[in-house]
Each structure stands twice: as C-alpha cells, then as structure tokens.
Design a binder for these strands. Structure first.
Length: 316
DNA sequence: AAAGTAACCAACCGCCTCTGT
DNA sequence: CACAGAGGCGGTTGGTTACTT
C-alpha cells in the first residue's frame, strides 16, 4: 500500500482558488511567514491541503512573480538551461528570478518544445550545420556571463550584509518571513498586485459573485470596494485581513513602481534563487553543481576557461 | 453563429529528498 | 541507524479560452 495522502481528502476543496482564499493565504503568510505548510489549512480555516497552499503561494501569490510574455532572452535562457540541466525546472527557475518552475515548465511544454522541434526539422534540411555550433558557443558565453553577473550580485549582497547588518540581503527582501514587519512593504504589495489582478478577472467573469460595493465603472475603486465589502463579511478575521490588504494596496503599493521592483530583481539577475525560503545557496556550490552536470558533455572546460568578454555583454 | 479543435495554464498527483526524533 | 513526516519537484490532467471551419 502506498503512503496515505498528505492530508484528508474529506472536506478538502479542490480546483481554482478564489480571491478570498488568496487573501486569507497571503495574509496568513504575511503574518506567519512561508513554511510549516502543514499548519496553514488548520490555522487559516482554508479547506485546502497544505500542498495546495504551498503551490498556490509559490506559483501565483509569491511576490515578484512575472507571468506570461516570456522575452526572447528568457526563452533562450530556458532552452539552454534545459539542454544543460534537463527537465529540472526548479533549477532552471532559480536562474530566472521572476519565473516559477511551473510557469517555465508550461512554457517549455507548450511553446519551446514545438519551436525547437520545428527548428530542428529545418536544421536537418539545412547543410549549414556549423551555424548551430556557433550559436551554442554563444550560449555558453552568455551563460558564463550570467554566472559572472550572478557572482557579482551575490558579492554585492554579501558586502552590503556585512557592512550593514540591519540591511537585509536581496533574498530577504522578497521573502515574507515571520519578521515581515521589518521587511519593506513592497514585499507584500506584489502579492496584493497578484490578487488585484486576479480580482480584476474575477469581477469581470462573475459580476454577481462580488457585487456588494463593487463599482464596475472604476476598476481600482472596485477592487478597494471589493476588499471593503469582504471586510464587512461574516468572518471577523476576514475583515481585519481585508482591511490590512486594503491598506497595503492603497498606501504602500502605490509608492512602489514596478520598475523599482524590477530594478531590485535586476540587481540579482541570474542569481540562482530558491522559491520557498528564498535562501540562497552559496553561488559557488550551484555553479559547481551546474558545471558538474555539464561536465560529461565536455562543456566544463569551455565554461571555466571562458573569460567574460565585453562582446558578450551586448547579447543581453 | 455554432461546432469542433487546438492551445494554454492552474492545479493535482505521487514519488523523492530532506530533516528531526 | 531507522523511521516518519513535511516539503519539494516533475509529470500529468482537466477546465477554459482562442482559433478555425
């Protein structure tokens, strides 16, 4: 017999998450921090299994997530990393700070696999086989540059940490921990943004489900009203949750532009990041691991010997 | 306009790994 | 060292949306 399910299947809700559930989850994580997922359903009253909560957080509600519209650069990164690492989506995602493993996996399965298949078909017809070798070399250089940039970012982060112990490292800026009171509000605002986006779709799709207080002619107002209306719902905890969310939305989030947020990410661009605790392995370990993986394909030497060339920078 | 098909993506399932006891 | 439980991960599914006929 297999292991019992991670949680009771009786009374556990499945399927798409509602905005209310998202708000409850985000609010809880904002207070308690991510982790100890087992206790999340019982502490929040969510009728979801712990895994579902974790997945929802990591793939959708976590701050800093960018969805859809993969850039050409990201696309190529994924292709190359997939070539190096295989279907280790979490590892690949760690090199694309804005993206989740699920998102990358989906994108690979729906877009890139076909695209590559198509390209391969064309290449087979072509007699210029060396062109692919050249582009591969370029990618190796690019990755080397990525690694260099990541190293720099990590060094900077560590230097900052050392010089000013009160300054949280980048990894902490984007994590919602139990010490979240000291974490800049932008951390949570991004989640609020995700929910706001969700609410936007939700209000469009099901105007009846949240009509109380929703002014459909004004989107931002409708979102706020929606929060308020839920704040006056039967559940008192929900009320405080929504009020808090609203305050994040209205005061803090508006102060933090997306570009600023992006800039923070860019500072640590291509630095491998983990999803859950946002704790970063020492880069050298990851680097080594990556190279070890690549080594059997005879690429280690290429990577190690490649110096960072200015000519490769323009590729980004 | 309706039906059929393809594409997309959120979420689930089950196995694996890690960690605490 | 062995075991159990929790979290992490990759494969897969199913519902929804977009597109085509």
């Amino acid at each position: 017999m297999g292991r019992p399910p991670c949680c009771d299947t009786v009374g556990v809700k499945k399927g798409p998450w509602t905005p209310e559930e998202d708000i409850i989850l985000v609010s809880y994580i904002q207070e308690q921090g991510a982790g100890n997922w087992r206790s999340v359903p019982s502490n929040t009253g969510l009728l979801r299994c712990s895994k579902s909560c974790r997945l929802r957080w990591t793939n959708y509600l976590r701050p800093g997530i960018k969805r859809g519209n993969f850039t050409e650069h990201e696309e190529k990164m994924i292709i190359h990393l997939q070539e190096l690492l295989g279907n280790r989506w979490a590892a690949i995602a760690s090199y694309l700070p804005h993206r989740t493993d699920n998102d990358i996996k989906n994108y690979w399965n729906t877009h890139l696999k076909k695209k590559l298949h198509k390209q391969k078909g064309q290449e087979d017809l072509s007699t210029h086989d060396h062109s692919s070798t050249i582009s591969k070399g370029q990618w190796e250089k690019r990755l080397q540059t990525d690694i260099h940039m990541a190293k720099q970012a990590l060094c900077e982060a560590l230097c900052i940490e050392k010089s000013d112990p009160k300054t949280p490292p980048d990894s902490e800026i984007y994590s919602v921990t139990s010490q979240c009171k000291t974490v800049p509000s932008s951390t949570y605002a991004s989640s609020a943004e995700n929910i706001a986006r969700l609410l936007e779709n939700w209000t469009k799709k099901s105007p009846n489900s949240c009509q109380a207080g929703v002014n459909e002619s004004n989107h931002s107002a409708s979102l706020n009203n929606h929060h308020l209306s839920m704040g006056s719902s039967s559940s008192p905890s929900e009320g405080t949750i929504c009020t808090r969310l609203l305050s994040f939305n209205s005061s803090n989030y508006s102060d933090i532009s997306q570009s600023e947020e992006d800039a923070k990410f860019d500072a640590a661009n291509f630095t491998p990041q983990t999803h859950e605790q946002e704790t970063q392995m020492p880069f050298t370990m990851l680097e080594k691991w990556l190279f070890d993986d690549a080594a059997p394909h005879g690429q280690e030497g290429d990577f190690m010997d490649l110096a960072l060339e200015e000519t490769t920078v323009h590729l980004f």
